[in-house]
Design a protein around this nucleic acid. Sequence first.
DNA 1: TATGAATGAGCCTTCATTCAT
DNA 2: TATGAATGAAGGCTCATTCAT
Lengths: 213, 213, 213, 213
Amino acid sequence: MAAGRSGQTAARRRGTRAGGNSGSHRRGELLGIAAELFATRGYAETTVRDIADEAGILSGSLYHHFSSKEEMLDEILRDFLGPLLERFIAIEKEGENPEQILDELIRHSFAAIDASPVAVALYQNESTMLNRQSGFEYVAEIGKKIEKIWLQVLKAGQKSGVFRSDVDVNLSYRFIRDAIWSTVRWYRPRGKYKHEAVAVQFLTVLHGGLHTT
Amino acid sequence: MAAGRSGQTAARRRGTRAGGNSGSHRRGELLGIAAELFATRGYAETTVRDIADEAGILSGSLYHHFSSKEEMLDEILRDFLGPLLERFIAIEKEGENPEQILDELIRHSFAAIDASPVAVALYQNESTMLNRQSGFEYVAEIGKKIEKIWLQVLKAGQKSGVFRSDVDVNLSYRFIRDAIWSTVRWYRPRGKYKHEAVAVQFLTVLHGGLHTT
Amino acid sequence: MAAGRSGQTAARRRGTRAGGNSGSHRRGELLGIAAELFATRGYAETTVRDIADEAGILSGSLYHHFSSKEEMLDEILRDFLGPLLERFIAIEKEGENPEQILDELIRHSFAAIDASPVAVALYQNESTMLNRQSGFEYVAEIGKKIEKIWLQVLKAGQKSGVFRSDVDVNLSYRFIRDAIWSTVRWYRPRGKYKHEAVAVQFLTVLHGGLHTT
Amino acid sequence: MAAGRSGQTAARRRGTRAGGNSGSHRRGELLGIAAELFATRGYAETTVRDIADEAGILSGSLYHHFSSKEEMLDEILRDFLGPLLERFIAIEKEGENPEQILDELIRHSFAAIDASPVAVALYQNESTMLNRQSGFEYVAEIGKKIEKIWLQVLKAGQKSGVFRSDVDVNLSYRFIRDAIWSTVRWYRPRGKYKHEAVAVQFLTVLHGGLHTT
DNA sequence: TATGAATGAGCCTTCATTCAT
DNA sequence: TATGAATGAAGGCTCATTCAT
């Protein structure tokens, strides 16, 4: 649902950058095109000319809106990761018990993939590179904060007895995280599976396991 | 038959000169270096010079061993995917029941990650690009064959009643597949988790679910 | 006569619209900013955007005042070189003897550096480029006229016996010229040396030499 | 004379840089071409393509020899400034009295201009830019060391009474320095003036002044 | 007068690849 | 087998300039 959308574009929220016209309409459009291409072909494999071509302008003209290709990537990631973390924090705070919180975290994750498949794909595909890239330290930092939230919920659940105690929380978290976010590679918003349905299926297996009892 | 083909190393299949000892020792070394770099930095991000530097030779000299950068990637992938598929086929054939076969498929997957982390990482990270790249159609083909095996096992399990029937097999397969293969991003052969232990943990959650009953 | 022409500012000479108040105030401001930057960073190294930034407008807006970057350079140079040549002509005409004329030429040179350091620096630094640039032939022409004046004075002085005859006039002229105009690189109007003092020092060495007798 | 030449190329003296083949024959040739162009058109105005064209290769091929355009400039400057400073130090050390040392410094300066007009021009024309450019701090440093030597000689001469005391040493030094090095702009090694002759003329004026007594 | 968007040409640099030695 | 030199195509970016609003 709409709750997944981050609303306003980050350019709006941010101050001036190169050129000083960070909050224009065109900027947003170009960012969308760039994000699409970055997600599809990969960041390094997408040329500035590709983006410009798609936008119907010359490559040099992009630099009227952005000071570098990297800035585009940065803006796309911030626009996605910031709100995502905030939402996770809110879910944990407002949740009633570990069980309900975990489910909500999972449901929101699938909703986020549905709402911003492009940003998620980018995050998934470029994370290795991003960890090496200076200026993108915040990506790993947000990743760590998110991990902390999930781990706390899992631990709390084990303590209260709703989650089984014979599994390693770290491993479980990683299994869950990877299974969820990897769906971006095959999930199609307009395909036969709705994101809520995918979430339900995932929760079903996660809760009770694959085997009959 | 096909089984015999994948047994030999890729270097073997490619003759460079009369005689046929083209699968030289040096070639294997260089391939190892390339694989390592491809997996770490990404295929596109790794330059031929990076590989040559690491090998202590000049970039042009690499072309005495391989006809192109792509050939290296190709060889690495074939060497990994061929045997992997064969093993999966064998597991299915020799298995006694869906439950046991699935467990074995999973166990072998984690073992493969442990044995060839570099190749797995390459396969994981470059699959999107590979799908677009002509000459690498076999990668998707093997992927489909593997998928078929897993899906058959899951369906058989549902039919025989050992796997619950209220979950979509396709979705389940993807969740399982992604969770398993994604571990390559954080699993370290010499780390605190042994691959068998990871497999056991994964099987535990998968069998009975995260929740206590 | 010619004297009248150079009295008016260059802006005056160039009409942009009906009426003729094209030599607007803003134009002069912008020219000052451009001159400052050209002198500091070099003409080629100064971008039109640098100038616009400094003026608080967008680079495209500069073209309402000037038809090109080159026009700015042209105007700055003309405004400086025209009056300079006239003054030198006047000094020669009004002077009484070679000795006094040379001293006056030198004193005025230092005064010009003090008054228009920016234009002098520009002239010094870009002269090589200017000699190649079409449309700037007048710069070399004025240079030649100035040289002629100085050489005549030196020759006359040698003839009259006040300047020693065992030195080549051409070489002497160049030594003198270069020593004088190069001071623009280190002379600071507000520094510890006043321009008259620098002139006196220069004249002292030039007249009697560095050595004691 | 031969003493002015710096002999071996700096590439020889230095360790590996990009590519690791710093001391090749081709490298020296390319450096000469680059120096010539840098001096003639200016560093910024000379494109890498200009250099490559002149060398009869493609611009990209230059990067087999140098890691950047800047590296070429750096090497040219070091090759000139290093030996120059050393020579000045030697002259001061071996000199007998201020008078003789100053004359020798001046004579060697003119010889250096004759031997390496290109490097001198480069140093003269780009010094402002060089002062701003990180990585070229050594240029200003060497300049300061050279200044120190000259100033010491002048001061010593004033103390011993051979140089007049009513002139500011700093100003004198700058007049002398600028007059000498500026000759590079018009001095032509194959022209009518030999560098020794120019030096003699300069010394004549400097010693006794322009005026007859 | 000024803005904002865009052009078009060119710049420095990278990189897979080739080939004579 | 390896070197050293070069190719040719492309990539990210800069910049003077134009023009509709």
